[in-house]
Amino acid sequence: MSHSSTVLITGASTGIGATYAARFAQRGHNLVLVARDKQRLDALAAQLSEQYKVSVDVLRADLTQPDDLAAVERRLRDDASIQILVNNAGAAQSGSFIEQSTDSVAQLVTLNTTALVRLASAVAPRLAQAGDGAIINIGSVVGLAPELGMTVYGATKAFVLFLSQGLSLELAPKGVYVQAVLPAATRTEIWERSGIDINTLAEVMEVGDLVDAALLGFDRREAVTIPALHVAERWDGLQAARQGLLADIRQADVAERYQVKA
């Protein structure tokens, strides 16, 4: 990937997405910024193009709306200059599962999973054919921890991790790098929008620190980057335990503990 290649970033008007935009612009990449708030996008585009002398296009889109999503998909399919997709757009919501409405849950799933996988699907074949490019999917450590109580949000982020790992296995041999980034609590507007008071959280990472760490993982070509994980061997141990579990699954035989005794 050359530094003159274009990066398309969803959820780019603020927070993690806007910070990715600034960091990639600083590296000399042209940008396509996608979000709902066109006024903020225009302001960010003007700032970054002036500061870093890169080309910045704005694509206003609500990724929960089929027509808007289709427009972003077309851009990813047709614009050969786009070599990096940052799938950052996402949302959370407060309350327990039974307190959340069916419609709000469905909208959360649409944004956090359906839109993300459709955009990856739109760009991956072209990148694979070119033998170059990258997809960055923003997940969350909540996807590893049902104990945290954010059931639907966590489930969508578990999907993002699984998808990213599967895509990495499929696409890496074709020259396409896939990275899953799993932030912990980060100081962005997602908390206010979801009705969660960020001041109730004991520890919160600054967004610049999060993105800088994620990009270091990107440069190292990590398949999974967890900036807040201080003992890297924990992840290695989890993967080893998972592989050991899979080795003990014998599909033809019911495990002894489930066998009915005569």
Rank of each mutant, 00 (worst) to 15 (best):
R187E: 09
E170K: 07
A122V: 07
A223H: 15
P173W: 13
L238S: 14
E206D: 07
L246P: 08
A172V: 08
K174W: 06
R193K: 14
Q251A: 11
Q243N: 13
V176L: 04
R250W: 02
A247W: 14
V254F: 12
P227G: 07
V176H: 13
A180L: 06
G154Y: 09
A240Y: 05
G143N: 05
A185V: 07
A145D: 12
V207K: 07
R221I: 13
T188K: 00
A255K: 02
G166Q: 04
A214G: 06
D212V: 04
A128K: 07
V176W: 04
W191Q: 02
L246Y: 14
V231T: 12
Q179C: 06
A255Y: 07
V224A: 06
V123C: 13
Y153R: 10
L245T: 04
E256I: 01
T225G: 09
D219M: 00
P227R: 00
D132Y: 08
L148V: 10
L246S: 12
R220G: 03
S194K: 10
P146L: 15
A247C: 04
Y177R: 08
L210K: 04
P173H: 09
A180S: 13
T151I: 08
E203C: 02
V231W: 06
G195I: 06
A155P: 11
E206V: 04
A172D: 12
V207M: 10
L210W: 01
E192P: 11
Q165P: 11
L171R: 05
I226Q: 05
A214W: 00
P146K: 14
F162Y: 12
Q239W: 08
L182Q: 13
W191G: 05
K174D: 01
G217M: 03
K157P: 05
P183N: 08
L201D: 06
R221Q: 15
Y177P: 09
N137F: 04
V207N: 06
V204A: 09
G175L: 03
E189S: 10
R234G: 09
V141M: 08
D197I: 03
A155Q: 12
T156N: 00
I138M: 13
I249L: 05
G149T: 09
D197M: 07
V152A: 11
D236F: 02
E189A: 15
I138D: 05
A180F: 10
D132P: 02
S168C: 08
G143F: 07
T156C: 04
D248N: 14
V178P: 00
E256P: 00
L171S: 05
R126D: 09
A145N: 10
G208K: 02
Q243S: 12
Q239H: 15
E192S: 11
A184I: 03
L169Y: 03
A130N: 12
D209L: 06
S121G: 14
G166E: 13
Y153K: 04
N199A: 15
M150W: 13
E203L: 09
S194Y: 08
E189V: 12
A180W: 11
L144F: 01
V181G: 01
A232I: 01
L167F: 04
A124E: 00
V231C: 05
K157F: 05
D212P: 07
S121W: 12
G208M: 02
K174A: 00
A145P: 00
Q251D: 14
E256Y: 01
S168V: 11
G175D: 02
G143C: 03
E189C: 06
I135W: 01
A172L: 09
A128W: 01
G149L: 09
